[in-house]
Design a protein around this nucleic acid. Structure first.
Lengths: 203, 203
DNA sequence: CAGTTCGCTCAACGAGTGTAGAGCAATCTT
DNA sequence: AAGATTGCTCTACACTCGTTGAGCGAACTG
């Protein structure tokens, strides 16, 4: 019927058996989770603190209290264990290719929300761009070290660019032509291209 | 010295010999040019009409009068002759590869501001995303038709994804590892990878 | 040269944003 | 059980944004 006017959910009545610290932690997690999802879907600028708070079932001011500012919330939401270079412990080129395809989110069920949030905002939000550059350059370094050979860094940069491109088109733009193809087929088609960038040939 | 308090540049004193229609057109062009540059640099949401107007040396209200709304301005700024599929009149695979590398902005001196504006905003602005999908799918169709072979559409989609990825990383993120490599070298390194996606091999 | 047109600016509104401070009520302490 | 602590909400401020309508003055028309 008529919607209950939110019975003054004092943040207390629900979840009866939790301590104050536990409830605080639970709120923080809920906010972070909601923030990641919204940042991943709409990017930094279109995501409002009010929307995050509403999605988390919480007052906007609480978000400020926990994370200091919208930027602080974004930083926390995006900062997760920085994925080590996809080729950290790869022994041969085939393992490098496997690692790259894995980091694409083609295998498994997509990339984590935090990664999507960073990617979604990296073209419009300066801090996200800086973070993206940092992460990508680090991965390129690892990749270049693993591949060696002439122009290793340029090759590695192109490999990461390809990864970014496929991730962007598939996960963020959701191109039908990509979504309509099974992920293992995409990986299979992509594999020779990645191999071609790893091979040393007389250019 | 102290800056002149803008001597009431009535839009008339300057450019003495132009007719009203000519001045109107000149204003429109200036606004569009400023808009393209700002949209390309900061994306849709961070670009304000006030900033565009200031960059064009014009009152914000004039922008509204010319383009109706911020969205209208963006649409006009981004709508340019849709680039025909990079492989429209390609005869063999090598010409397809050339066309792809060309549409990357690696050759010449980068992509036009209108393309950069669309790319910059395509992850955060729904209209830009729709436009990007439309353009990319069209190019994929043309590419798939030119390449034929098994799974042609998936291959074409991956080719466009690679193009997008390199363009994003090079033109928008400005990754040092890419900017530090001559563009012809990047093209040369990329070529075998693109070829690998065009070749039909038993997968 | 008088009257009209119109490109343009000025000033302002209303909505939405990030953010800060006061206060409540449930939990923790003694 | 009384007091101190604190997670949380309410209210509101200051600001910026897109957008609008009135009006000015130069360019056009006769």
């Amino acid at each position: 019927m008529t919607e209950q006017p939110a019975p003054r959910a004092e943040g207390a009545a629900e979840a009866p058996g939790l301590s104050r610290a536990q409830r605080r932690l639970r709120s923080e997690r809920r906010i972070l989770e909601a923030a990641r999802e919204l940042f991943a879907r709409q990017g930094f600028e279109r995501t409002t603190i009010r929307a995050v708070a509403a999605a988390a079932g919480v007052d906007p001011a609480l978000v400020m209290q926990h994370f200091g500012s919208k930027q602080g919330l974004f930083t926390q939401a995006v900062r997760v264990a920085v994925p080590e270079s996809p080729a950290a412990q790869a022994r041969d080129q085939e393992q490098v290719v496997d690692a790259l395809l894995g980091s694409l989110g083609l295998k498994l069920d997509g990339l984590p929300a935090s990664s999507l949030a960073m990617m979604r905002s990296m073209l419009t939000h300066p801090e996200a761009a800086a973070h993206a550059r940092e992460v990508l350059e680090a991965q390129i370094s690892g990749l270049a070290e693993a591949t060696a050979g002439p122009e290793a860094r340029a090759r590695a940069a192109l490999l990461m660019s390809i990864t970014v491109g496929v991730a962007v088109c598939h996960q963020l733009l959701a191109l039908d032509s990509l979504r309509g193809t099974p992920q293992d087929r995409l990986a299979a088609l992509l594999r020779p291209a990645l191999r071609a960038l790893l091979d040393e040939d007389p250019g």
